[in-house]
């Protein structure tokens, strides 16, 4: 055991925990928020990503356990997410059907599916995704552990700028923005609003499913029914925090991921009081930022114009 090499790092543990937490805990946020960003850019909200996240986590863990291949698990998570996305994408575009309501029904349905089929996978131990160790230069185990980075995190890191570029510079990106900003204009361009939104929702749910895989196959690396603790819903707030900008989603995910580590890290060095309030910090922060930056006189930069309307 490496116990001899253990050194107490005292106060440094807090920033270290936060940095490590950002990468560990930020990975699922990153995928879910990028998925939600893509969805919202097309003008629909998907609150159901909480259910998608759970289903993805369950599918990834189950597949990895049954086949022994964690990467197959990641793929299964994406596909399972996309299937739920199909339901949401189709249903939320029916006349008079509200996407927020469908999202909440999908949370119930998605978590039901995940829990129902996930029962046999709670006990067994599935093969985890390999990690890339960047901490070899240091002999402090704390730093080594903090720098064990998941390839999923790196993939997410790559997707964020890619998605930004996709929105900005590709034809398809333009279609999505047009559909999200002014469906009328998009219709005039000859774009099928239904198809674009459907594809955006499905692709977004695919990403969110992979976020679930990050939970069950990387950190904390197990399947239980309480694995998500509301991250799917939080991602919706996160996207707004990030102003529908994929790069900002990356920073926001890191921030939210790090925030989860603050409470335990502070306690482990002796700051004890009010951890419930610490736990609420990300929500309060998002709310405060929304209040500070919103104004009735101008619309938010980046907000898809058709978001939250019935068109």
């Amino acid at each position: 055991m490496a116990a001899e090499a253990v050194q107490a790092i005292g106060w440094w543990g807090v920033p270290l925990a936060i940095i490590a937490g950002t990468m560990r805990g930020g990975t699922p946020f990153l995928f879910v928020s990028l998925g939600e960003c893509l969805t919202e850019k097309s003008g629909k909200i998907n609150l159901g990503l909480e259910g998608t996240l759970l289903t993805g986590a369950m599918a990834a863990y189950g597949t990895s356990y049954l086949t022994g291949s964690p990467w197959l698990g990641v793929l299964a998570a994406g596909v399972a997410g996309a299937l739920l996305g199909c339901i949401h994408g189709w249903l939320s575009q029916q006349l008079r059907v509200n996407d927020v309501a469908v999202g909440i029904a999908m949370i119930i349905f998605g978590s039901g599916v995940a829990f129902f089929f996930g029962k046999p996978f709670i006990q067994p131990k599935a093969t985890q995704l390999p990690t890339i160790d960047l901490g070899g230069w240091s002999d402090t185990p704390a730093i080594q552990a903090a720098l064990q980075i998941s390839p999923l995190f790196l993939i997410g890191l790559a997707i964020a700028p890619l998605m930004a570029w996709f929105f900005k510079s590709t034809r398809w990106g333009l279609f999505i923005r047009a559909v999200g900003d002014s469906p009328e204009a998009a219709r005039a361009m000859g774009v099928s609003i239904f198809k674009v939104r459907m594809l955006s929702v499905v692709a977004g749910s695919f990403l969110a499913g992979i976020g679930g895989a990050a939970l069950s196959l990387y950190y904390p690396g197990l399947w239980t029914e309480r694995i998500s603790s509301g991250q799917g819903l939080m991602a919706v707030a996160l996207v707004i925090f990030a102003r529908w900008n994929p790069i900002a989603c990356l920073w926001a995910s890191l921030l939210f991921g790090g925030a989860q580590a603050i409470g335990p890290a502070l306690q482990s060095i002796g700051i004890e009081d009010g951890y419930y309030l610490f736990n609420a910090a990300p929500y309060v922060l998002t709310l405060v930022i929304m209040i500070l930056t919103c104004s009735p006189k101008r619309t938010l930069s980046g907000v898809p114009g058709a978001l939250g309307t019935d068109t």
Binding site: A8, L16, Y219, P220, G221, Q260, G263, Y275, Y276
Partner: peptide
Amino acid sequence: TQVVFTGNWAEPIKEAEAANSMADQGID
């Protein structure tokens, strides 16, 4: 004995963070 309260009965991520930060503090 260092104690960390996560605040709820099932908080997988906070439990993992608590365990990690304890390990960082030399708890073995």
